[in-house]
Computed example of a mutant assay.
Amino acid sequence: MLEQLNQVYDSSLKDSFFNLEPSGQESRHKLDHNQLNQFIQTLLTTIDLTELSELYFEQLSTTLQLSELKIQFEDNQVCFGKPPQKPYIKSLNCARLGINIATMQYTFSQPVSIRAWQILQQMHMNFSYPFKNALEHHKMKQFAMKDFLTSLGNRANYNETIARLANQADRRHEPFGLLVMDMDNFKQVNDTHGHHEGDKVLVTCAKTILSSLRESDFAFRFGGDEFCCLLSDADESVNALIAERIRKAISEEPFLATHEISSSIGTATYRENDSQIGIFSRADEALYKAKHAGKNCVVAAKICHK
């Protein structure tokens, strides 16, 4: 019996306590054939990784009273629910061809019985198959959403991100910021040193921009030497602070300084009942003013009072 338990118990689990006494409530938790089939059918309704994971969490929270689910894959993580004051954590891996591609961390508010642990393993196994497909779809989508040269988001990624932020802003009444920037004197690099050197400048600009942002912010390359950033939960003061941080970092970067590269930045803030076209137009107009104000500066758009 102990040998069998050791085989099913994952060595990465942080909690080794089992409730050996089954209760009537736990008996009702057991999935019959119809419930299991319905669970699998539900998971097949989407290939979007976030939606799939949320459906999985909803099923687990109903069946096993799961408090929180964290899924770690590569450098990303999705999380649902909230951790209890006294967490009981179980971790299971998802592997492909013997290589771990994701780790699921399950957090409960009470010790997990053997019966519940077996059900969790069963559900985890059935979730792993559609999750692997969703992860591959996610990777391909991310690849298609990246600028080939700088690895920043591209225009399609920008459109998707600003639509999501606008939706959140309208629902939660939280503003977000947009920075539109142009690299000053970039054309002379291509004209004098060639496109290879110009590419090195663009890659350095992208890295410098990224290093100046918060973890919750997003950076994109629109093409040429035009970049933009979306700043979550940001108002005019936050926009100004981050824009100035970027401007200063670019002007002080040694390699960029050798080519006299600086940045002109226009900023705008999305407000309730604003539009995606409206905020971009205001930021772009502010950028135009920054270029004509002598370059290497930050100009804020007029506040939208719609």
Rank of each mutant, 00 (worst) to 15 (best):
E3S: 04
Q4N: 11
Q4C: 02
D10G: 05
K14C: 02
F17D: 07
G24W: 04
G24D: 11
L31W: 00
H33K: 11
Q38T: 15
Q38N: 13
F39E: 00
T42F: 03
T42M: 08
L44M: 14
T46Y: 04
L49N: 07
T50M: 04
E51D: 08
L52V: 02
S53Y: 02
E58N: 13
Q59P: 00
S61C: 10
L64T: 02
D75L: 03
N76F: 10
V78L: 08
V78E: 02
K82T: 04
P83R: 09
P83Q: 03
P83D: 08
Q85T: 08
K86L: 07
P87C: 06
L92G: 09
C94L: 15
R96L: 12
L97Q: 12
G98R: 10
I101T: 05
T103R: 10
S109F: 05
S109W: 01
Q110I: 02
I114P: 06
W117K: 10
Q118R: 10
Q122T: 10
M123C: 03
F127K: 08
K132M: 13
L135S: 08
E136I: 12
H137M: 14
H137Q: 15
Q142R: 12
A144Y: 09
A144H: 14
M145P: 12
M145S: 14
D147C: 11
D147M: 13
L149M: 15
L152W: 10
R155C: 07
N157C: 12
Y158C: 12
T161P: 06
T161S: 15
A163G: 12
R164W: 09
A166F: 12
N167S: 15
Q168E: 14
F176K: 07
F176Y: 15
V180R: 08
D184G: 11
D184P: 06
F186G: 08
V189M: 07
N190K: 09
T192F: 07
H193S: 15
E197S: 14
G198C: 05
D199I: 07
V201Q: 11
V203W: 11
V203N: 11
T204S: 13
T204E: 13
C205Y: 01
C205I: 12
K207F: 04
S211K: 09
L213N: 05
L213P: 00
R214V: 09
R214M: 10
S216P: 00
S216W: 01
D217V: 01
D217W: 06
D225Q: 15
E226F: 06
F227T: 01
C228S: 14
C228T: 09
L230P: 00
L231Q: 06
S232A: 13
A234D: 03
V238H: 10
E244D: 14
K248R: 10
K248I: 11
I250L: 15
E253K: 01
F255W: 06
A257H: 01
H259M: 04
H259R: 03
E260I: 00
I261V: 12
S262H: 01
S263F: 00
R271H: 07
Q276C: 05
G278S: 10
R282P: 05
D284V: 05
L287R: 03
A290L: 04
G294M: 08
K295F: 06
C297Q: 02
V299G: 07
A300N: 11
A301E: 01
K306R: 04
